[in-house]
């Protein structure tokens, strides 16, 4: 049965409902907790293997060794990063993780360069024996 104005009932039902759109900067939608946003670097865990640098599809991450000590800083170019989180997956030591921080727009290019400074390792010896559990989603082997 064809009739014009098929959607009329639906339209009138929705007039009184609150709008589906929101005014963004004033109200924000809820972002799922494990959304892939800005990558977080935990300097204490980094061993400087640079697998993340090698695997990054966008060449957005750099790991530097600022001093003589074996501590590392990470530089992210937020404008080059494609937020795929492959580096998180590749990291053998949990030095990288994702955060749901997606509002990364900046007004200058310089502030898109995010530096996580090198931090000295905590005094107690890290437990080297405990490897990352080999789950099904384990990253490809580092030594291949």
């Amino acid at each position: 049965m064809k009739k014009p104005g098929k959607m009329l009932a639906e339209l009138f039902r929705n007039v009184t409902k609150p709008p589906a759109t929101i005014q963004y900067p004033f109200r924000k939608l809820e972002i799922p907790g494990d959304s892939r946003g800005r990558i977080v670097f935990i300097s204490e865990n980094c061993i400087g293997c640079k697998i993340c640098v090698r695997d990054c599809p966008a060449e957005a991450i750099y790991i530097n060794k600022p001093g003589e000590e074996k501590i590392f800083e990470a530089v992210f170019n937020l404008d080059e990063c494609i937020y795929c989180a492959q580096c998180v997956l590749s990291c053998p030591k949990d030095a990288l993780s994702i955060s749901p921080d997606i509002e990364l727009a900046q007004i200058s290019r310089a502030s898109l360069r995010l530096v996580y400074p090198a931090k000295p390792k905590p005094p107690q010896p890290p437990k080297e024996k405990v490897d990352k559990p080999a789950e099904g989603n384990a990253a490809p082997a580092a030594s291949a």
């Binding site: 972002i31 799922p32 494990d34 959304s35 892939r36 494609i82 937020y83 795929c84 989180a85 492959q86 997956l89 994702i98 099904g136 989603n137 490809p140």
Partner: peptide, 18 residues
Amino acid sequence: AAMTGNRVNYSFNLIGGA
């Protein structure tokens, strides 16, 4: 978004599985 971490470009695949 909740399942894969992004609305588009899900990055859900790995060589060898999910």
